[in-house]
Design a protein around this nucleic acid. Sequence first.
DNA 1: TGGGATTATATGGGCGTCAATGGGTATATG
DNA 2: CATATACCCATTGACGCCCATATAATCCCA
Lengths: 153, 153
Amino acid sequence: MDLFVSKYFNKIDKKGRISLPSSFRNVLPKANRNEIILYKSIKSSSIEGCGVGRLKEIAKRINNLDFFSEDYDDFSTSIFSEIVTTNIDKEGRFLIPEELKLYAGIKTEAAFFGQGHFFQIWEPKQGLKNTEDSRRRLLKEKKSLRMMLTQQK
Amino acid sequence: MDLFVSKYFNKIDKKGRISLPSSFRNVLPKANRNEIILYKSIKSSSIEGCGVGRLKEIAKRINNLDFFSEDYDDFSTSIFSEIVTTNIDKEGRFLIPEELKLYAGIKTEAAFFGQGHFFQIWEPKQGLKNTEDSRRRLLKEKKSLRMMLTQQK
DNA sequence: TGGGATTATATGGGCGTCAATGGGTATATG
DNA sequence: CATATACCCATTGACGCCCATATAATCCCA
């Protein structure tokens, strides 16, 4: 499986370390399995994360913008300066930077939610609430969900 | 990681030295790991920096401008003639030339902002304000920022 | 197929190394 | 010679690496 799926609830230890779920680690390419990138989610108070390969894609895309335009700087600043890379230790743990923990309201425990090509890290209660909320929204438009699931490529 | 990412706040000591963040040093090619170039940003009151190898890339971008336009001369002059090279000492520190510190309003502390293939050095408060401003501009077009982050190859 | 043995995962903690910072002294450069 | 800059050494705190344990998952063979 090369997608981030399912949800996990892990603890942050005294040193601030937390285990990246094993199944998530396996999604990372063997080459860069000891490094991930983290950034503040744009539309929720959660942290989003993924492998570094994804960042290189983004870099390429930004590089194609007009270098002398204002957009270039805006994207570059909002993305590159906001992204942090963190190392994963031999046991599969990493540190969540203080600023990101504050942003997401995370203290001693965190919830990992698979999102396919990336994952989210939530304060557990907020994360669960968000799941409920989004499911409720989807069910309101059951028809579109049905289409999404049954439509053939 | 071969990109300048994240942000760091470091101090300038009595001798005028400041540490280039360790993760930035690692982006520099092992060959020229003790030298960087600095120049005034064209678009903001910040200093931009990168490894010497990036000079060619800058030259290429300027060359793509219309040779007979006023912009060409302006950019060419503003950038090339203003570039300074500085050496990084054994501990990873370097000196920010007085003129550049003045230009950016930097005194005792400076903020490093990753920008992918280069980085910016700001007076800390101005740098943070700039980040907010540019994010605000982008969020007006939420769709485009989101696309940038989530679009698949 | 049952049950013990092996392996993996999440978690805890000791300790050495490195990054950021400070300062003394040699060296260079005008 | 005077000032600036490079090199060397020191300190502190953070982080990475190593080892350890408990629980859970998997295996493997009688």
